[in-house]
Amino acid sequence: MSFFALKNVTKTFGGLVAVKEVSYEIEQGHIAAMIGPNGAGKSTAFNLVTGLYVPTAGEIEFDGRSIAGNKPDYVCKLGVARTFQNIRLFAFMSAVENVMAGCHVRMSAMLWDSLLHTGRQKREERAVREKALDLLRFVSLDRYADDFAHNLPYGFQRRLEIARALASDPKLLLLDEPAAGMNPREKEDLMTLIRKIRDRGITVFLIEHDMGLVMNISEKIAVLDHGEKIAEGTPAQVRNDAKVIEAYLGKTA
């Protein structure tokens, strides 16, 4: 069993086939990407992995078990964290609270602790706040710890979402278009950040439109078009694939 694999995964909505028999394996410690035109089924693939949708057919393996059809909170507990294409922070919680909420699944306070603020609860809260501040430092947002997520600039929000995802101590991090809306400078920083995350031993799987970024940091790329995988390989292989060029540039009749 591989660390992470989609195996012949299909998802249909009514009559529409969003993802069709897609297979994709990722090795632990790699940075892997999935690219494709808008509406190719990339985000649907992510939603299948995190358990928001249940695959119509096929298997999803992660860390030695089958995770297809599990609920999002359980998938997160197993070690898969994600960010969202259109940023879903807890808009009116502070940056540090967002990250602390991300720690939820690794905390042990029970109802009783929460009600009575037991010593155990207090120690854990302190530790979690420290951990959250560390993560904010890691994404260079520690200065904004007490600001509402909503009030941060766009690029910062993307980084905060990454910090929140990291708070659940994932083994696999899914990034859904992390560079969307970023300027070239911010993209540079993002690439550095993604590499730093990988160096922590976390496998990164990203969806991205920015070819420069994808080609630069990925070890492996899959290309989706109309829900089907049309190519897979190293950046160099994908770049020169005839089908990929056709999908992106259209048929030259």
Binding site: F92, A109, L115
Partner: peptide, 29 residues
């Protein structure tokens, strides 16, 4: 007040703000 400022209270707040995101952070909604 204890509930509000605890793990559980933070989880409630997260669900109130964005239930789907909260579920993806491992909160059993």
């Amino acid at each position: 007040n204890n509930l509000r400022t605890s793990r559980l209270g933070r989880a409630w707040m997260a669900i109130r703000e964005d239930e789907i995101a909260a579920a993806h952070m491992g909160i059993n909604t």
